[in-house]
Simulated scan of single mutants.
Amino acid sequence: MPTPPPTGPLVTRNSLATELCALGVEPGEILLVHSSLSSLGWVCGGAVAVVRGLLDALGPDGTIVVPTQSGDLSDPAVWGNPPVPEAWWETIRATMPAFDPLVTPSRGVGVIPETVRTWPGALRSAHPQTSFAALGARAAEIVDGHAPDCRLGEHSPLARLEKLGARVLLLGADYGTCTAFHLAEYRIPSPLVQVGRPGSAGWEVVTEVSITSDRFDELGHDFERDRPITRGKVGAADVRLFPVADAARYAQRWLGLHRSREEEVASEGS
């Protein structure tokens, strides 16, 4: 049987920019973009058209920021999707290439961030597992100085984005992808973990704040209920727009309350 034609909607660079501006995206602002290309519809030009549309909406003084995480640069002992045989672990640790911001691809964040990462003029932060790429007028200011022992906290691009008044654009993505919520994990009592990864001098282990996006969808539901955010459509995609600072501040209260309750319940059951 012949393949049925796409149902659309047809999305172009111009239609995307027009709809973003109608939603409230402002020229010159900074957007932290979490995205799903497939949610938009049939995009003429794919991820390249989406990036160009974002740049059109933001203008020459605006800046796009995207997560370009590389979680595969991690200890094979904790891999689960898929796991690898224990007999391989030491060889993997000894031979895994170290992070190179120019070469290491992003993983698990979609094709739009990878397109931004490889765009002429894009800059990338230096953390080997939770880097961000930025494109535009404020790119260097945002990505410089990402501390190697601070994945998503006070010495990461997230804190810079908060200070600069950036907004989050969930472009067909859900709250489970919202990295701004992770800032709150550094501002409430959180356990520390040992994180293994390849380094310039061989395998290294650093102490880091434990982070997880578990319950971020629930957190996002409450955030949207309690705080004013902008909602709309771009193509077929559901879109949400809100300040990084609002998200981090709300998440700090929410996680402080709900994770404390979880710990109390766990201790009562032990």
Score class of each variant (00 low, 15 high):
residue 177 T to P: 14
residue 177 T to A: 12
residue 177 T to C: 12
residue 178 C to G: 11
residue 178 C to D: 14
residue 178 C to P: 11
residue 179 T to M: 02
residue 179 T to V: 06
residue 179 T to E: 00
residue 180 A to P: 00
residue 180 A to G: 05
residue 181 F to Q: 06
residue 181 F to A: 09
residue 182 H to S: 03
residue 182 H to M: 04
residue 182 H to G: 01
residue 182 H to R: 01
residue 182 H to P: 03
residue 182 H to W: 00
residue 182 H to V: 00
residue 183 L to Y: 03
residue 183 L to T: 00
residue 183 L to D: 02
residue 183 L to E: 04
residue 183 L to C: 06
residue 183 L to I: 02
residue 183 L to N: 05
residue 184 A to R: 00
residue 184 A to P: 07
residue 184 A to G: 06
residue 184 A to W: 05
residue 184 A to I: 05
residue 184 A to L: 05
residue 185 E to V: 03
residue 185 E to H: 00
residue 185 E to Y: 03
residue 185 E to F: 04
residue 185 E to I: 03
residue 186 Y to C: 08
residue 186 Y to K: 09
residue 186 Y to P: 09
residue 186 Y to S: 09
residue 186 Y to F: 12
residue 187 R to D: 13
residue 187 R to V: 13
residue 187 R to M: 12
residue 188 I to Q: 08
residue 188 I to V: 10
residue 188 I to A: 06
residue 188 I to H: 07
residue 188 I to E: 05
residue 189 P to T: 08
residue 189 P to V: 08
residue 189 P to N: 05
residue 190 S to T: 11
residue 190 S to K: 07
residue 191 P to G: 10
residue 191 P to V: 11
residue 191 P to E: 14
residue 191 P to S: 11
residue 191 P to L: 12
residue 191 P to Y: 10
residue 192 L to W: 13
residue 192 L to C: 13
residue 192 L to R: 15
residue 192 L to N: 15
residue 192 L to T: 15
residue 192 L to F: 14
residue 192 L to E: 15
residue 193 V to I: 14
residue 193 V to Y: 11
residue 193 V to H: 12
residue 193 V to L: 12
residue 193 V to G: 11
residue 194 Q to W: 04
residue 194 Q to G: 04
residue 194 Q to P: 04
residue 194 Q to A: 06
residue 195 V to L: 10
residue 195 V to D: 08
residue 195 V to R: 10
residue 195 V to T: 08
residue 195 V to Y: 09
residue 196 G to W: 00
residue 196 G to E: 04
residue 197 R to E: 06
residue 197 R to S: 06
residue 197 R to C: 03
residue 197 R to H: 06
residue 198 P to L: 00
residue 198 P to I: 02
residue 198 P to S: 06
residue 198 P to M: 01
residue 198 P to T: 06
residue 198 P to K: 03
residue 198 P to R: 04
residue 198 P to Y: 04
residue 199 G to C: 01
residue 199 G to A: 03
residue 199 G to E: 02
residue 199 G to Q: 04
residue 199 G to Y: 00
residue 200 S to K: 15
residue 200 S to Y: 14
residue 200 S to D: 15
residue 200 S to F: 12
residue 200 S to V: 14
residue 200 S to P: 15
residue 201 A to W: 14
residue 201 A to L: 12
residue 201 A to P: 13
residue 201 A to K: 13
residue 201 A to F: 13
residue 201 A to Q: 15
residue 201 A to S: 14
residue 202 G to L: 02
residue 202 G to K: 04
residue 202 G to H: 01
residue 202 G to C: 00
residue 202 G to Y: 05
residue 202 G to F: 01
residue 202 G to A: 00
residue 203 W to G: 03
residue 204 E to M: 05
residue 204 E to A: 02
residue 204 E to F: 06
residue 205 V to P: 01
residue 205 V to L: 01
residue 205 V to A: 00
residue 206 V to P: 11
residue 206 V to T: 11
residue 206 V to C: 09
residue 206 V to E: 11
residue 206 V to F: 10
residue 206 V to L: 13
residue 207 T to H: 05
residue 207 T to Y: 02
residue 207 T to I: 06
residue 207 T to L: 02
residue 207 T to S: 03
residue 208 E to D: 15
residue 208 E to M: 12
residue 208 E to W: 13
residue 208 E to I: 10
residue 209 V to M: 08
residue 209 V to H: 08
residue 209 V to T: 09
residue 209 V to N: 07
residue 209 V to L: 09
residue 209 V to E: 09
residue 210 S to V: 12
residue 210 S to R: 15
residue 210 S to P: 14
residue 210 S to D: 15
residue 211 I to H: 06
residue 211 I to D: 07
residue 211 I to W: 03
residue 211 I to E: 08
residue 211 I to S: 09
